[in-house]
Structures are given as structure tokens and as C-alpha cells.
């Protein structure tokens, strides 16, 4: 008879990209103009996806869904949404 002693453990582990490469959902890409940016970090705090690096304000395009919240909230207008090729 087959043994039923199976080790139970959590079957999911925290990893980036749990929903796949979500960058492919994007229709518009946020582009940061580092000359205008004053590093206020508002885009970082409002990003629902946690793809913006806090100090350098760089965006991880692999997972950015292109929602555009950062561009609307940017007080200096340093982030613009450009149409994806």
C-alpha cells in the first residue's frame, strides 16, 4: 500500500512576477526626465506596482503596467507617458 506520509508545506513562495511579466500589459510607457525631476518620491509612494526605484527614480519596465498614476501625480511634470512601439 502506498504511503500517505507527505510533508505539508506552503506551496507558494513570495517572488517577483507572480502575475507574469506584467510589463507586456502596457500601452503607454512612463519616461522620467531626470533634469526636471526634483526627487520628491511621490511617484514612488503612489506606484501600485512598486517598480520605481526610490532614490534614482528609475522604472523597472519588466513589470510596469503603465497605469500612469506617476505621470498624473508628478508635481513637476517630469514623467511623460509615451506610446509603446
Amino acid at each position: 500500500m502506498k504511503s500517505v506520509t507527505k510533508a505539508y508545506q506552503p506551496i507558494s513562495w513570495p517572488t517577483k512576477g507572480a502575475g507574469g511579466d506584467t510589463g507586456s500589459w502596457r500601452t503607454h510607457r512612463p519616461v522620467v526626465d531626470s533634469h526636471i525631476c526634483n526627487k520628491c518620491q511621490l511617484c514612488w509612494v503612489y506606484c501600485p506596482e512598486a517598480v520605481i526605484e526610490r532614490h534614482e527614480i528609475t522604472i523597472d519596465y519588466r513589470y510596469c503596467k503603465g497605469c500612469g498614476v506617476c505621470a498624473v501625480e508628478c508635481p513637476t511634470g517630469a514623467i511623460s507617458m509615451e506610446k509603446e512601439e
Partner: peptide, 28 residues
């Protein structure tokens, strides 16, 4: 905002819609 800690509990590439307020709030 600048005093908020660095670590993330909501990881990039989740299955939420773009601009989802739930993940936005859950991050904070």
C-alpha cells in the same frame, strides 16, 4: 514620504489591474 521604510511587502509583477488602489494601499 521620505521617512517611509525601504522594504516592499507587495512585490512587483502582481496580478492586479494597472493603477489598482488595493495594492497601492497594501504597500503602505
Amino acid at each position: 514620504i521620505k521617512k517611509l521604510p525601504d522594504f516592499e511587502q507587495v512585490l512587483s509583477g502582481n496580478g492586479a489591474c494597472g493603477g489598482c488602489p488595493s495594492t497601492m494601499a497594501l504597500r503602505i
